[in-house]
Nucleic acid binder design. Sequence first.
DNA 1: CTATTTGTTTCACATTGTAGGTAATATATT
DNA 2: AATATATTACCTACAATGTGAAACAAATAG
Lengths: 109, 109
Amino acid sequence: MKILSRTEELLLISIWKLQKNAYAVTIREELKTMTGQIWAFGGLFVSLERLAKKGLVESSLSDPTPERGGRSKRIYRLTGNGLDELIKIRKLQESIWEQVPKLTHEKLS
Amino acid sequence: MKILSRTEELLLISIWKLQKNAYAVTIREELKTMTGQIWAFGGLFVSLERLAKKGLVESSLSDPTPERGGRSKRIYRLTGNGLDELIKIRKLQESIWEQVPKLTHEKLS
DNA sequence: CTATTTGTTTCACATTGTAGGTAATATATT
DNA sequence: AATATATTACCTACAATGTGAAACAAATAG
């Protein structure tokens, strides 16, 4: 399987963290707090759809919650493969970065 | 500045590691050994060009080396800003991942 | 001079992500 | 009941990023 894109990685982490409460709005907020950046909904759905097609996440519609405007949410969760990929990308990153000593500006020629 | 794409991050790391010997061919090999994946040259040059436009890398043509076919190489190096971004993305990743306990399959519902 | 090697660059296309919307369904207000 | 407003899903045209494959350039070997 190809290496995950940054967005895919962040999505998987968000879903993992949010557990049963992982749906578009909360995922988007989680991305914002993690990175300081704002993600467009369009991209979210497209990327989630792609992850689903790869078998890394799955989703289902929840019952509506009793709050104003609280319509059904599409709840996302990791599959076993999704968790595997998450573990894999973490290991890959660790192995890549451990070959790079802590960087400082003095090291720059 | 927007968060670096995966490719951009890997490119900056490669250049950092290769030091004076960072040009398209060696960078590509470095990407291969780091990730196990093969990068197309097209993407390399486009991405390097983009990094240059952002001021994260700069390049110059070397003298040809006295080996068969050894023509001039375009050598890439990090700028100060490039090193900053590299340090930044490392910190961002560490901060994101340290909120996620070591993952195991038992944790999955 | 011609073939071969090393390396850069280009280009059409595929994939991924953005900006900004529409639509559906719930509660709140009058 | 009718209307307003909130929450959420989803769509679509476009921009940014990455791929695959080739063309082009300059060096040495014979």
